[in-house]
């Protein structure tokens, strides 16, 4: 008997053999891929090194603190934004958002471009295979009581061999999740928005 399609919905009247095959296929599928493992220690060390070099160079050229901090925040934002988007590491979104907030404090006019960048990055999260892998892993390791549909989408995403899928044309529907995009945008945009609001509020209170 050929292996059951793990992505298909099991018929209610399926015979036991088919149900068993289906269950095995799903288990195999779910356990085949783990979540992407990003070497965070290496990322942190690299960032620290780049920041240190950048700080030393700029201070040596007698730049202001503003000029030193600005590229620093930018480096952090880009690095952790990429880790968040490609590696599906939630805490990296926290760091990227915090760096973006630092940029807003330094350059309040940068808010809109930053929000645009956050939106682009969030769109990236919508199609990034890493997120689908984490979701599939999560679905396989947790009883999908509240999110059967999420698990189903995640499982579907895993079914496609990635290299072939991409070479045949991006099958966005296998990876895309609108709710993921919105959630990622909120995580990335929250800090700069909060910083901008705080600056506006303080200014408004003082001007009253």
């Amino acid at each position: 008997m050929t292996a059951a399609d793990p992505l298909a919905v099991l018929r209610p009247d399926a015979p036991p053999a088919e149900a068993e095959s289906h269950a095995e296929s799903r288990m195999r599928l779910a356990t085949a891929a783990g979540p992407p493992r990003v070497p965070m220690r290496r990322v942190l060390l690299t960032c620290a090194l780049v920041l240190a070099v950048e700080t030393v160079v700029l201070l040596a050229t007698e730049r202001s603190l503003h000029d030193v901090l600005l590229p620093g925040y930018l480096i952090l934002m880009v690095a952790f934004g990429l880790v968040f988007c490609l590696g599906a590491v939630t805490v990296a979104g926290f760091a990227a958002g915090a760096a973006a907030a630092g940029l807003v404090v330094l350059e309040p006019d940068a808010l809109l471009p930053l929000l645009g960048g956050a939106a682009l990055l969030a769109l990236g999260c919508g199609v990034a295979p890493g997120w689908a892998r984490v979701e599939a892993w999560q679905a396989a390791h947790s009883r999908p009581l509240t999110a059967e549909e999420e698990a189903a989408v995640a499982q579907r995403a895993l079914s496609v061999d990635r290299s072939r899928a991409w070479s045949r044309g991006v099958r966005l529907r296998n990876y895309w999740r609108s709710d993921r995009v919105l959630a990622a945008f909120l995580v990335l945009a929250f800090h700069p928005l909060l910083a901008a609001f705080s600056l506006w509020f303080i200014d408004w209170m003082q001007r009253r």
């Binding site: 947790s142 999420e150 919105l182 959630a183 929250f190 909060l194 509020f201």
Partner: peptide, 25 residues
């Protein structure tokens, strides 16, 4: 302001581990 910001942010993250993005907003 910051306290509420932290609380909101922790709640934003809360939807991620279980991928219940629909709850995040």
């Amino acid at each position: 302001l910051l306290g509420n910001g932290v609380i909101i942010y922790l709640s934003l993250l809360a939807g991620f581990k279980r991928r219940t993005y629909g709850l995040v907003p």
